[in-house]
Computed example of a mutant assay.
Amino acid sequence: MSRPVSRVLMLLELLQSGGLRTVGELAARLEVDERTVRRYAGHLLDLDVPVESVRGRHGGYRIASGYRMPPLMLTDDEALAVLLGLLAGRRAGLTAATGSAGETAAAKIRRVLPERLGGRLDAVLGSLAFTDQPTTPVVPESSVLLPIADAVRHHRPVSIRYTAADGRPSERTLHPYGLVAHSGRWYVTGRDPAIGEERTFRLDRIAAARVLPGAFDPP
């Protein structure tokens, strides 16, 4: 999903939480300028979302009274699979334990489910126990994970800024072969063409990743 689209959806989420939101407040939450907020509000109007503009010193935007997004149409099995998948990902260390995108996604899905199905899923999640101890994850930044995953998929070299365990920073080129999630940490393995050896790097120690032109032949 492109960033402008995700921010338009975030604007909708903010407005649906209720009340009047000032343009300045929305701009700060979305990390854009006020002109962009007004453009995003126009996008919602184009989608027939009843966004109301309130003028004046304390004006802003709000959703028309009584408007609700339609229920998410999932079968019992589909809804259970999604929520259990998010929960399992958190337990396995694939996402952060608290305050993560997975946690907020689960809350959003739960909020728009039909009441009957939502109650049944709450019963499952409330009565579920695990025999293993939860992993404390070290989740990589999406700005690092996504370009590396793209480079792996398309066999493209990637430039990374890496900090070793002893604190030494370096910048290097990597031909990434694949991503591995193990014991709450993410790794990328590949070939370092500068030294002609295969290496493995922890993603949480990569400060920046950039896909480079060209291609390589994976083993």
Score class of each variant (00 low, 15 high):
R161L: 15
F201E: 00
A149F: 01
R39Y: 04
E171K: 09
P4F: 04
L11W: 06
R21A: 09
A96C: 02
L121G: 00
L47T: 08
L20S: 01
R91C: 01
S183G: 15
R21Y: 08
T98G: 03
T135V: 15
E198F: 12
D192G: 08
A96T: 08
V158S: 01
P169S: 13
G118Y: 01
A123K: 08
E197C: 11
V5L: 15
R120L: 05
W186C: 06
A194L: 15
A27E: 09
V49Y: 01
R116G: 02
T135I: 15
G178Q: 10
L87C: 03
F130G: 11
L113I: 01
A28I: 13
R202P: 00
G24T: 01
L121V: 08
P147T: 11
R7S: 12
T163I: 14
A106L: 01
E197N: 14
D150W: 13
L30V: 12
S127Y: 03
T75C: 06
L179N: 03
R116W: 01
R210G: 03
D76R: 08
R62C: 02
A27W: 01
A28C: 13
T95P: 00
V124N: 02
S143I: 10
T95Q: 05
S159Y: 03
A101V: 15
M1E: 14
R156W: 05
R153A: 11
L146A: 11
R39S: 03
P70G: 04
A41S: 07
R205H: 07
P176T: 08
V49R: 04
D33V: 11
A101D: 09
T75G: 05
T173G: 11
D166S: 12
R57C: 02
V112Y: 10
A129Q: 13
H154K: 14
L30P: 01
V144H: 00
R57G: 02
D192L: 10
A97R: 13
G59R: 08
P71G: 02
Q133N: 07
S2D: 14
V54F: 10
A208F: 08
T189C: 13
R185A: 07
A79F: 00
R111D: 05
R116A: 05
S170N: 05
G18T: 11
P218R: 10
L94W: 00
L128G: 00
P134G: 04
P70D: 03
A64I: 07
G93S: 04
S2C: 14
V37R: 03
P218M: 07
G102E: 09
D33H: 06
E13A: 15
A194Q: 12
P219C: 10
L15R: 12
D76H: 06
S143A: 11
M69P: 06
R38K: 15
Y67A: 02
G184Q: 04
Y61L: 10
